[in-house]
Design a protein around this nucleic acid. Structure first.
Lengths: 214, 214
DNA sequence: CCTACCATACCGTCTTCGGGGTATTTTTTA
DNA sequence: TAAAAAATACCCCGAAGACGGTATGGTAGG
């Protein structure tokens, strides 16, 4: 019997438990092997160099630093490596960014095992895999981010998106650049957010965001 | 050979992938079995009734609704059930709440597999398991240096104190009033904090504070 | 005694934020 | 199709923060 070709996968995610658990999940697949796991963005490049993976599964939120930028950096150095971004947040903008960055997949962490394995095999097979449930979110008010607080507080899609960016530490100007808006518009959204949440300071906003996992 | 006693575990977490992965991780343990997984808080009680688990692993952030409250509700209905809360955030406040709610464990998601298994076995064995890396600061205001971050970053007592007040959402003026300083002095401390942490914005500071449980 | 460090305090300048408006276009929904 | 909601954008102004200095009194350690 011919030896089955095995694909090496590198995990990059600062949630150790998730990482470990994923590892054990993938170990059940005979044709997939974990060649490493990394918890910090700063260790990533080194790990890629050492383990030369075929595929990287990477969280988009790597403690402050942007997973997409890291992914871009990796593919520019190692063009044969394929990368799937994992994220908790259902944001078409992030999906678009991922696609535009030339990465190969985008999957929500609340996807099922089946979806994950299919995405992995698709991407290893040379195609891309972008979670369709993200781009085709039919009614934003129904369940835009899988979170209930948004509808409870009547937050719109745009507002939640901007909260997330404020939480990341971006200024109005930077947010405007990132999502292609006028800084004035960002200010308007921000005022509405403050009104809806009944707050008046960035600090309160960041605490709200973290509390609600934005 | 006597049949090994097997403990039934119920997973409650809205991150499906994490859930699945955890499942596969735990399946490697012969004495632990997953009796169910639930993604929404609203399904939890029903699942507990149906599968009567010995132990519940539960995310503290269940899409908007509070995992601690849910846990409290469960133990009041099913007093023999034991519950470990999982969370991404290193907040002594949450740990305390968990403990006061009469729940049995608190574990960070960036803990390792070993910690998880030990926590599970401890809690099943009748003791509680509260992540010491969170609670290790028994008196945060008294001794912020018990935590490594303060000494690691060369933060002084005053600086840690001011970080906490900034996190609370106070302005320089309010902080000055609170601890009887000139607002200008607060600004100076603030500059030094920014320098030591390598940051430049309040938002980053708040995130640092929450991450380190200040 | 000298050095290092901490806590204290002030000054000036520039940027960003907060809060008050108003208004247009697009999308959604009733 | 009309009304409502969301997203876009601009104006002004005052408050607060960010960042560059400088300086002084106290205290601990070599």
């Amino acid at each position: 019997m011919l030896p089955e070709p095995v694909s090496r996968i590198l995990l990059i995610d600062d949630h150790r438990l998730f990482n470990d658990a994923l590892k054990s999940l993938l170990n059940e697949q005979p044709d997939l092997t974990i060649c490493g796991q990394v918890f910090k963005a700063s260790d990533a490049i080194h790990a890629v160099h050492r383990s030369s993976p075929h595929l990287i599964l990477m969280d988009i939120n790597l403690q402050g630093s942007n997973g997409i930028d890291l992914g871009k950096a990796i593919v520019s150095d190692y063009p044969t490596v394929r990368i799937i971004m994992l994220t908790m947040y259902n944001q078409p903008k992030l999906l678009d960014e991922t696609r535009r960055a030339g990465l190969h997949g985008y999957l929500l962490k609340d996807a099922g095992t089946t979806e994950l394995l299919r995405a992995i095999r698709d991407v290893l097979g040379g195609t891309t895999s972008f979670d369709t449930s993200v781009s085709s979110s039919p009614t934003p008010t129904d369940d835009p981010f899988g979170d209930r607080f948004a509808s409870r507080l009547n937050l719109t899609f745009r507002e939640v998106e901007i909260i997330a960016l404020i939480r990341e530490g971006l200024s109005n100007e930077q947010i405007a650049d990132r999502i292609h808006l006028s800084p004035e518009t960002v200010k308007t959204h921000r005022k509405n957010i403050h009104f809806k949440l009944g707050i008046s300071k960035v600090t309160e906003l960041v605490q709200f965001a973290i509390k609600n996992g934005i």
